[in-house]
Amino acid sequence: MNKVILAAAALAVLSTAAQAQTVRIGTEGAYAPWNIVNDAGELAGYEIDLGNAICEQAGLECEWVQNDWDSIIPNLLAGNYDVIMAGMSVTEERKQTIDFSQEYYPSDPARFIVMTGSDIDVSNLSGVRIGVQSNTIQAAYIEENLAEGNTVVQFANPDQSIADLAAGNVDVILADGSFLESVAGGAQGAFELVGDGIVIGGGVGAGLRKEDTDLIATWNEALDALKADGTVNELIIEWFGEDGSTF
């Protein structure tokens, strides 16, 4: 009888441990409205709310890890966290190294932003200084299509690129439209979006290690449920406004 009790107790401990599995989520904390550090010094944004909702839906404990963009994939592969939620577009190039969950935001077209009143014609860029965040799909697009005849300035984080645009160190910036809309909308008219949106990558999804197939399946099951009950669309509208791209 004692052996049966001990076995049952051991199973209960194992079951509790499984339920309390901690998933570490890496994010940048510098890309509004996807992920930011708020006035209280805490991570906030669409992906923070969604990541927490996914963990609650899946019965997982969430632990957020803030990480610079340039090393965000290497640190996932190194095991410093288990999932990336950082406004990362799904691309074939990235899929050679990591896997992705299903998309939790449809394709976010890139946009150009300039200082208000600029006479730069983004349909025919020549002899200008183009700012872009390094290791992004926008940086790859600029190098392939607009590097010749222009000066490309790469930045480690998006806030630095906006600061250099304001300081006159670059003439135009290319980045995700949703991020630049938040910049233009909160800058009292200092910046303006110009030109049409440019679709470069796919939608935005969570990055995971290829071998973590169980976690990928769990993440997708939770996203399916949150899309079905309207949570994902509600969070998109909350953080991106009524013009946000919903499912």
Rank of each mutant, 00 (worst) to 15 (best):
T91V: 00
C62S: 14
D121M: 04
D176I: 00
Q138K: 04
V232H: 05
N135Q: 07
D164C: 09
E148D: 15
M88V: 14
E242K: 14
N80I: 08
L77P: 02
L215D: 02
S161H: 01
I5W: 00
I72F: 00
S123K: 15
Q19S: 13
G202M: 05
R111D: 02
N220L: 10
L146G: 06
A110H: 14
I98P: 11
L193D: 10
N157P: 10
R209L: 03
E93Y: 05
A20N: 14
K227C: 11
Q133N: 10
V83Q: 11
V204E: 05
W64K: 07
I173S: 07
C55P: 13
Q102R: 14
E242A: 11
R94G: 13
N67S: 09
A225K: 05
D224N: 04
L76N: 06
S134A: 15
E93K: 15
D214H: 00
E93F: 06
L146P: 06
T116Y: 11
G41N: 03
T97W: 00
I120L: 05
N157K: 08
R209Y: 01
F179W: 11
E61M: 05
V128M: 12
D164Q: 15
F155M: 13
P106G: 12
I113F: 02
E211I: 06
A30R: 13
E192S: 11
A86Q: 13
E63F: 06
I72A: 00
E103F: 02
A206R: 05
G51E: 09
Y104T: 01
I120H: 09
T218G: 04
G195L: 03
L77G: 04
I216H: 01
A78N: 12
L165P: 04
L60C: 01
G202E: 01
G207D: 11
E93A: 15
P106V: 06
G59P: 12
R94S: 11
A78V: 00
N80K: 15
N157F: 06
D49T: 08
T231I: 04
E144L: 10
I73S: 00
V114C: 12
P109W: 01
I84S: 01
G203W: 03
N220A: 07
A166D: 07
G185H: 07
K3H: 03
E103M: 11
T218D: 02
A156D: 15
L125N: 06
P158L: 03
L174G: 06
G177F: 04
G203T: 12
D39M: 12
E47P: 03
A86M: 09
I236T: 06
I25G: 15
G205R: 02
G203R: 03
E221S: 12
I36G: 08
V199G: 02
I216K: 15
S123G: 07
M115A: 10
L180D: 01
L180K: 01
A228C: 07
Y141G: 15
N35R: 02
M115S: 14
S126L: 04
W69R: 02
E103W: 01
G117V: 12
D108W: 03
D68S: 11
V152F: 09
A225D: 08
F191S: 14
E56Y: 01
A156K: 12
L50S: 00
G26N: 08
T246M: 13
I142V: 14
A44V: 06
I137N: 14
Q138F: 09
V194M: 11
F100R: 14
T213N: 00
G202V: 11
S178R: 07
G185R: 03
N169S: 03
A17F: 11
L14K: 11
A139Y: 01
L223G: 13
R129S: 09
G59I: 03
